[in-house]
Amino acid sequence: MDQRAPNLLDEALGLVDEEKTKPWPLSSRVVLVEDRVETSGAFVLHHLLKRALSPHSSNDVVVFLAFSQPFSHYDRVLRKLGCNLTAQRENNRFFFLDLLVSEFPDGDEGNRDGLVALYGKIEKLVSTSFQENKKCITIVIDDFSLMEVAANGATNYVLDFLRYCHALTSTFGCSLVVLNHEDIYSSIERPALILQMEYLADILIKAEPLATGLATDVHGQLTVLNKEIRDEQGSSRNKICNFHFRVKENGVEYFYPGSKT
């Protein structure tokens, strides 16, 4: 399964690695996935999850903060992609934090303490994994807007949480993958939260519907902004890729606009 030709998303993310020698290219990077009501970006998370748990990198660990779906959902979805989450969970490679029903205690203090406790949990997982010589740790948050709701709209605390997680990426070389919904913030005048997230992100992936509406063979388009790619000469530049996608049960087809046969 993994020997398949690399797809456009992997290329855009720099995940293509012919010799399988380089370390996980997303380490120390923040990936922000933005989607809309019409087009869900959850499949990008599933894809990254599958990549991070692939058998080639048996030293990698994923910490998954699930606000939006129960474990059974991810298990079924990933199984169809060829990745057994239950087994990975037993191997201590996949840590699933079920936050679907979690409520932080009421009040300002409660929100802060809840987030602090959650962060403490993540940090503990990350640092123990780090000591066990795990090569790379991926933290996935699905999805961030629900975390805001869980914290009853305490945006400052949620942002603090994000900054702490960001600090983990530089301390331990983790990668951080966050899903958020772009259209929630489009009507706010100065949406601090999404702007800060976009600022922190090294890779920004936007899933949008086509302007012409949805079709059965094109489910939407992805725009991947990869900040700071270093080429051989050592100079850095931004890379923007844009392509269409079609989500299927066992994977996603990516193709350039108009090239679908």
């Binding site: 087009t39 059974s72 079924r76 979805v77 949805l214 079709a215």
Partner: peptide, 8 residues
């Protein structure tokens, strides 16, 4: 539910 494929 339990799938990533959107219904079009």
């Amino acid at each position: 539910i339990n799938t990533q494929v959107p219904v079009i």
